[in-house]
Amino acid sequence: MNTKPAPDLVVQNLSVHYGEQVALKDVTLQIEGGQILALIGPSGCGKSTFLRVLNRLVDRSAEAHCTGEVFLGDTRVLDPKTDVVALRRAVGMVFQQPSAFPFSVFDNVAYGPRLQGVRSASRLRSLVESSLKQAALWDEVRGKLRRPAASLSGGQQQRLCIARALAVSPEVLLLDEPTAALDPLSTAKIEELILALRGDYTFVLVTHNLQQAARVSDVTAFFRQGRLIEIAPTRDMFTAPKCEETEEFLTGRYE
């Protein structure tokens, strides 16, 4: 289990450009450690970019350029001197497309610990078991750890990816539309899982499903065209949005 306290997330004047194109503009927000932040907004508004800044996966795009300040606890995320590898160990990420490696279930979860030099078979086995239990997948796969991950259902693969992230004991979890490709039952399981893990990790959840944001998040942020339009405690946001644009989006009148 996670022993370190979940870090606060502080973003100050964050802007991201891909070459000429502006993906995020002057975003400032702050959430407490252990909270669940939901990001909503139309496609292309920069939600994924925001997540990819938090674990510096944005570095992979050569033309991407970030300015501003991002703190995760004491870590200055955008500082060139920051150890990206250590940062990414502390920040787990789950993608929209199922990204389970084409290995066995066991090797998927053991991938992260092995990177850090864990060799002992018994240690790996207990890490895999505890991560799978945390991800509420253990009961479904306990006898099938040597099967290829691709033999699991879409929802199980997504929880496997969560288990894989949990196995390196992160402090932050980034979820980029984790249920977009799933059926309602699997979606419900993932939401349950997020709620069960709440408090131990700082969550940033991108979702297209507004009910989902309403159900699981503590704070909701609405983005449009790279700008943060409104951020508020989820209940306030969904009952009494301050901005007209937010209201239009929430009631489906947008676009």
Binding site: N55, L57, R60, V85, A86, L87, R88, R89, V91, G92, M93, F95, Q97, P98, S99, A100, F101, P102, F103, Y111, G112, R114, L115, Q116, C161, R164, A165, V168
Partner: peptide, 27 residues
């Protein structure tokens, strides 16, 4: 090799070398 796998590996804190050796070349 799919880009999601590569990014999945990097996101777990794999160095570029580790991603190459344990993921891309293995796959």
């Amino acid at each position: 090799v799919r880009v999601q796998w590569v990014e999945g590996s990097l996101a777990l804190g794999a160095t570029p070398d580790q991603t190459m050796g344990r993921l891309i070349l293995a796959v």
